[in-house]
């Protein structure tokens, strides 16, 4: 079976890869592309550990075919820090211990970043609903939500 040749942009870098027609974007990210930050928790859209953005939209990469990435823009957790400088959300998650095993964290951070881009001042309820597709079996969510709201407040302050 001939593999498909796909040209796309990942974290701002033009990228090419070969894939099977039925292969998921998550498989290609973690396999041939070596970007293992996105995690596979369920493979069925339920857990959000594989969250990326596709043309700026949050999606579960386990439910995107790699072939769909042709001419699209993908962002993954690997593109979140700028060199050694962590994104404020990443920094805050460390400071406030908003993670334990860390499997859910890349997906939570991707989703939280998009939330704050769209809504710099979310209420707790808005943040909880926005992140409802990111399951965490460790933290009980409270520290995650606090860290997101604290980061939002800090980023608003910094933008003034």
């Amino acid at each position: 079976m001939a593999k498909l040749h796909v040209s796309t942009t990942i974290n701002g870098e033009p990228t090419e890869f070969l894939c099977e027609p039925s292969q998921s974007m998550l498989d290609v990210l973690r396999g041939p592309l070596g970007l293992t930050g996105s995690k596979e928790g369920c493979g069925s859209g339920d857990c959000g550990a594989c969250t990326i953005t596709l043309d700026g939209r949050l999606v579960c990469s386990c439910l995107v075919l790699a072939a769909e990435a042709q001419d699209r823009e993908i962002r993954t957790i690997e593109g979140m820090a700028e060199g050694d400088r962590l994104h404020p959300l990443q920094q805050k998650f460390l400071e406030m211990a908003a993670l334990q095993c860390g499997i859910c964290t890349p997906g939570v951070l991707m989703a939280a970043r998009t939330l704050l881009e769209q809504n710099p001042d979310p209420t707790e309820t808005e943040a909880r609903f926005w992140l409802a597709g990111n399951l965490c079996r460790c933290t009980g969510y409270d520290k995650i939500i606090r860290a997101v709201l604290d980061t939002a407040a800090e980023m608003r302050e910094a933008a003034r």
Binding site: G45, L58, V59, C60, L63, V64, W130
Partner: peptide, 9 residues
């Protein structure tokens, strides 16, 4: 229908 991520699709 589904989460934020599911809504994206």
């Amino acid at each position: 229908i589904g989460s934020t991520q599911v809504q994206g699709r």
